[in-house]
């Protein structure tokens, strides 16, 4: 009996409120030391769903995952992009050093196909990461995906709108992403295994547009609002 309890504690499915347990759940480092600290020193949980909740794309959400994508693609694991809202731009990915051989973009027509594809990708041993942009998902579907991710021991990141933060979700990790400061990204933990929610950190992601952090204040004068040069 005590063995089961130990396992539960080790898996961080049950945890004690007075301490932020260091658990041994499998994970992948995020590539950002601040974010790793926020996620208990582990990073993205493996074999579980991660939800990133954000209002609009273009705030650095891809750049957040880029170190992981690069690392997985380098080790020959396939990274699937399921129903991305825009075109993942190949020259930018190549510039970031991502091995494009391992990137596969998928388009599913309806929710059935979407969940089916996602589930199949997650159960496969070749998959490293699945990034998915669902329209709507029933809690039942998310539960199914969570089980598939556990079965395949794969990483899955769902990008959803921020209004879903009100709903509960079986995902193991839920993060709210919002712009923070000049070109920065604020990450708030909404739910995570083994710890309280509510921690927050801010990442500077200005280099995603080729801007160095120092020159952010020295803005190049644009011609806006006077259109004529």
């Amino acid at each position: 009996m005590s063995e089961i309890l130990t396992t539960l504690l080790q898996d961080a499915r049950v945890w004690q409120g007075h301490r932020h347990t260091s658990t041994n759940q499998p994970a992948e480092l995020t590539g950002y030391s601040r974010l790793d600290t926020l996620l208990g020193g582990h990073g993205w949980p493996r074999g579980a769903l991660t939800e990133c909740l954000l209002d609009t794309p273009g705030i650095g959400e891809l750049y957040l995952l880029l170190p992981l994508v690069r690392r997985l693609a380098e080790t020959g694991r396939t990274v699937f992009w399921l129903n991305p809202p825009y075109i993942p731009y190949a020259p930018a990915l190549a510039r970031a050093g991502v091995n494009l051989e391992e990137i596969i973009v998928l388009h599913a027509r309806d929710r059935g196909d979407f969940v089916w594809s996602l589930e199949n990708c997650l159960r496969s041993p070749v998959t490293g990461l699945v990034m998915a942009w669902p329209d709507t998902l029933a809690p039942r579907d998310i539960r199914r995906l969570q089980l598939a991710a556990e079965a395949g021991n794969n990483l899955c990141v769902l990008f959803r709108e921020r209004r879903y933060s009100e709903q509960s979700s079986p995902a193991a990790l839920r993060l709210v992403l919002e712009p923070d400061g000049p070109q920065g990204l604020g990450v708030t933990v909404l739910k995570r295994r083994g710890s309280w929610s509510g921690q927050r950190c801010s990442l500077t992601l200005a280099q995603r547009a080729g801007l160095s952090t120092g020159t952010v204040s020295s803005v190049v004068r644009g011609p806006w609002p006077a259109p004529a040069r």
Binding site: P88, A90, P91, L93, A94, L100, E101, I103, I104, V105, L106, H107, A108, R109, D113, W116, S117, N120, C121, S124, V126, T127
Partner: peptide
């Protein structure tokens, strides 16, 4: 196996690989 299954269900065009030009 995985890619063939996905192609069979979603159609060949639904799976793409990107490359810079």
């Amino acid at each position: 196996t995985l890619v063939s299954r996905l192609q069979a269900r979603l159609g060949n065009r639904a799976l793409i690989r990107l490359s810079p030009k």
